[in-house]
Amino acid sequence: MEELLKILNEIKPGVDFLNETDLIENRILDSIEIMELAEEIMDVFEIDLTPMDIVPENFKSAETIYQMIERLREE
């Protein structure tokens, strides 16, 4: 989780990612930043993201992003 928070803070500094509950609806992350994030996640966590993973439910908060990473790691 720490590593994910580090990535998020690099992409969008100044956001309280631990407590932010809707990164998409509240327009904190735009599509280009989501792609930056996806690239970093794929590199750091060595997983493969597909378009099916890029859905608002997976990117609502740091917690849901981490759950997605965990799920993909298990698969």
Binding site: I34, M35, A38, E39, M42, T50, P51, I54
Partner: peptide, 19 residues
């Protein structure tokens, strides 16, 4: 375009390979 072109192309094998 974001959901059906931007994300799929960004995450396509072609884009990933070049990146």
């Amino acid at each position: 375009f974001k959901d059906y072109v931007f994300y799929p192309v960004s995450l396509s094998a072609f884009s990933k390979k070049i990146a």
